[in-house]
């Protein structure tokens, strides 16, 4: 039986919604589009589909390799599928967090963040080099080792990706509080794509924003600090080949010039921006500098469900 692919099924809806958003933005001014940026994003999506299909065997092969060691053999049922969906979203949170905090993974994921725009076409700006970001494979392992069937894992992850499409927009403001408290929304994900110092490295959630609230990475969007999108050091090209390769070229260049194995390892596994002499900026250093420049304010009361963790509390405090 051919596996059911939610993303393939939803693709016509993606296309229609991108067109609908363009018309909405043109006639209301709520959001921004730019033709060359849209072209780049869509071509990145096209290339990602091809590369994903071509190299799917790596992920499938890895899953098949570890599947015999699964703890249980879980069959198809709705409760199992729902549990798999929730656990896959938790898995996504940690993979996504690592993709922002580990240079090797960021070299690939940076492509998704490389647009200075934030609209539905940005959702389709997907990287081409997932097969090179090998440490990402380990985030697949827990669900397989628990014993969920591989087609179920693929299915619920497809649903997860479909959900994440519609949150890439400036055309939708905020939802009622109960919804914003539990679900990832356009407002929360705008923060994730923003380069404003207070918003860096926040809101990694896929479907449920509760993971960010639980693990201390949640930052709320503020009306007095409108998100600016893209990456620190915006890219200067709309060429999809350059966009797809730029993170890898930059990483390769640093590895080539590394003066020791330790430096090479740190270029691979430390945060993006790490350098041996500290001459470059990481998101932590940007946030620390920004926090130091803020006027002193009383310590905030954490929001319910928000657990400050080292490295984020100092940055979030003045912003709350």
């Amino acid at each position: 039986m051919k596996p059911f692919d939610p993303v393939a099924l939803a693709t016509p809806a993606f296309v229609l919604l991108v067109i609908a958003e363009m018309l909405f933005v043109r006639f209301t001014g709520r959001g921004r589009f730019e033709a060359k940026d849209t072209a780049a994003s869509l071509m990145m999506g096209f290339g990602s589909t091809i590369m994903g299909t071509a190299f799917a065997f790596i992920f499938l092969g890895f899953a098949k390799l570890i599947q015999p060691y699964a703890l249980f053999h879980i069959g198809w049922s709705w409760p199992a599928a729902i549990a798999c969906f929730v656990l896959d979203d938790l898995r996504y949170f940690w993979w996504h967090r690592a993709s922002h905090r580990v240079r090797w993974l960021w070299a690939d994921h940076v492509n998704h963040h490389s647009s200075q725009h934030y609209n539905l076409s940005t959702a389709l700006r997907q990287p081409w080099g997932g097969f090179l970001a090998l440490p990402g494979l380990m985030f697949l392992a827990p669900l397989v080792l628990i014993g969920f069937p591989l087609p179920m894992i693929a299915f619920v992850h497809g649903i997860n990706l479909v959900y994440q499409f519609w949150i890439h927009t400036e055309s939708i403001g905020r939802f009622p509080k109960w919804f914003e408290a539990v679900m990832n929304t356009p407002s929360h994900h705008r923060v994730h794509h923003a380069v404003n110092a207070r918003y860096l490295d926040a809101n990694y959630a896929g479907v449920f924003i509760v993971w960010d609230r639980m693990f201390g990475t949640f930052v709320a969007e503020r009306d007095d600090d409108k998100p600016r999108y893209g990456i620190v050091g915006q890219i200067g090209s709309f060429n999809p080949l350059r966009i797809a390769a730029h993170g890898w070229v930059s990483l390769g260049s640093d590895l080539w010039r590394a003066r020791s194995l330790k430096h090479a390892a740190l270029y691979l596994f430390a945060a993006p921006g790490w350098s041996p002499d500290g001459s470059r900026e990481t998101s932590d250093s940007i946030k620390a500098r920004w926090a130091a420049a803020q006027p002193a304010m009383p310590a905030p009361v954490p929001a319910i469900g928000t657990v400050p963790v080292p490295g984020t509390a100092a940055v979030q405090s003045p912003a709350e």
Binding site: M22, R26, F33, K36, T38, A39, I50
Partner: peptide, 22 residues
């Protein structure tokens, strides 16, 4: 499928160019 996708991309980009300029 690939040809259809490319035609779709081209059509959306053309619409974006018409609506927002180049």
């Amino acid at each position: 499928y690939l040809a259809g996708s490319l035609i779709g991309v081209a059509a959306i980009v053309a619409l974006a160019g018409w609506l927002f300029g180049w």
